[in-house]
Amino acid sequence: MSTLKNIPVVSHEKPSGGTGNLLANVFDELMAFCRSRSLFMLHYCTGCGAIELPPAMTSRFDMERLGIQPMVTPRQADILLVTGYVSTKTLKRIILTYEQMNSPKYVIGICSCTVNGGMYWQSYATAKKLNDYLPVDMYIAGCMPRPEAVIHGLRELMENIKKGESDNWRDYYRRYDHYLGNQQRLFGENWQTPTDIIGEARHYDLMGPETLGPHTALLEQHQTPLKPFEMTLGLADLPVRKDEPR
């Protein structure tokens, strides 16, 4: 069984910069600092760990003094908190939610269940290791972890972000094929989310050696295309292709 130390926290590269341009470095440091001091979290309250979050947020421990506050939709959030066991059905939603978040984004697994399945180890319907499917930045183990532990974990994450070490979200783009493969193994080969990870990786220049692979090829076979509707003029009086429907 893995211990916390053995779970790979992959960090491929520092954020761009470090090229000797002092101004750019200062700017990057500043951005990293702001990122670490302003974390909006989306708590995906799947299991019992959720109950430890209210005390962490309210008057006893007050996350807001660290700049952490709850948000409602994935678009607004920086942290995805998965607070307990993850059933196969739930995992689909978690993956969709994660993919809808804007990078830089961080995943925190709270409770033993996210680490290794916990007491659901023998369950046929529970995903055991969250980081097979999503790049987890921080595990807060315990059954359940006390609010102190949650706060401690969040402070660690802040520290990592400030140092530029916590960028596993890049890993999801760079090794998408690996994650997708695990997802396909669980959900079947028709698995598809309405988000376009490969397109995003291309758009933001986040492609890595394993972004594309056999699994993404399989995805492309089954995928219903999700090209965004570009604004088109398509004026009738301009010459149009013959096959274009009128």
Binding site: R75, Y204, T224, L226
Partner: peptide, 20 residues
């Protein structure tokens, strides 16, 4: 930062998968 156009079905629905 740069933005990327996304499809209208890539949309928040409380984790629900939208279809056309």
């Amino acid at each position: 930062g740069r933005s990327k156009r996304i499809h209208q079905l890539d949309n928040y629905a409380g984790g629900h998968f939208l279809s056309a």
